[in-house]
Simulated assay, not measured.
Amino acid sequence: MVTAGALLGRLLPRWERHRPADGLSFDASTARATLAAVAGGMITLVGFVVTAIALVVQTVTGVSNPQAVRRLRALLDRLAARPDRQGLGGAAAGETLDD
């Protein structure tokens, strides 16, 4: 399987050079639009995550369980303090209240 992948990696670019350039063409404006769409999607996702965390905090504080509030606050403090997991990255990577 690895040999087939290596062989295709060497032969396909040579084969594509000899084909006519029909179909889609990509230029700088296409790349710019694609990156803008990806960045917009990431910003939207971060907004949803922050909203979900705010709802969890409201729910936990509404229950009046001091232990749960302390555990959630400790988790958020640990996430903010880790340089390798900026912001909410730890929560997205599967960090739980028991970690």
Rank of each mutant, 00 (worst) to 15 (best):
M1G: 11
M1E: 10
M1D: 08
V2K: 12
V2C: 02
T3I: 03
A4I: 07
A4T: 09
G5L: 15
A6Q: 10
L7T: 07
L7Q: 14
L7S: 09
L8M: 06
R10Y: 07
R10P: 00
L11S: 04
L11V: 08
L12E: 03
L12S: 09
L12P: 10
L12Y: 08
E16P: 03
R17P: 00
R17F: 06
R17D: 05
H18Q: 11
H18D: 04
R19T: 14
R19S: 11
R19V: 04
P20T: 08
A21W: 04
D22C: 05
L24T: 12
F26S: 05
F26E: 01
D27Q: 10
S29V: 02
T30I: 12
A31P: 01
A31Y: 14
A33M: 11
A33P: 00
T34C: 14
L35H: 14
A37Y: 12
V38Y: 01
A39L: 12
A39E: 10
G40D: 06
G41K: 12
G41D: 04
G41L: 00
T44G: 13
L45D: 10
L45Q: 13
V46L: 10
V46G: 00
V46A: 14
G47K: 05
V49G: 04
T51F: 15
A52I: 10
A52R: 04
A52S: 14
A52G: 13
A52N: 15
A52K: 02
A54Y: 03
A54F: 06
A54G: 15
A54N: 15
L55G: 14
L55P: 04
V57N: 11
V57C: 06
Q58V: 08
Q58L: 14
Q58P: 01
T59D: 14
V60H: 02
T61W: 02
G62C: 00
G62S: 07
G62A: 01
G62D: 08
V63E: 13
V63H: 02
V63K: 10
S64A: 11
N65S: 09
Q67E: 01
Q67V: 00
Q67C: 07
A68S: 12
V69P: 02
V69M: 03
R70Q: 13
L72Y: 06
L72V: 09
L72G: 06
L72W: 00
L72F: 05
L72C: 03
R73N: 13
A74S: 12
L76P: 00
L76T: 06
D77A: 10
R78W: 04
L79C: 15
L79R: 09
A80T: 05
A80V: 11
A81D: 04
A81I: 00
R82C: 15
R82H: 11
P83I: 05
P83V: 10
D84H: 01
R85A: 12
Q86M: 04
Q86G: 13
G87M: 00
G89H: 13
G89P: 03
G90F: 01
G90C: 04
G90Q: 00
G90S: 10
G90E: 02
A91C: 13
A91D: 07
A91Q: 03
A93G: 05
A93C: 13
G94N: 01
E95V: 11
E95G: 09
E95Y: 09
T96E: 06
T96V: 12
T96Q: 03
L97N: 08
D98V: 05
D98Y: 07
D98W: 05
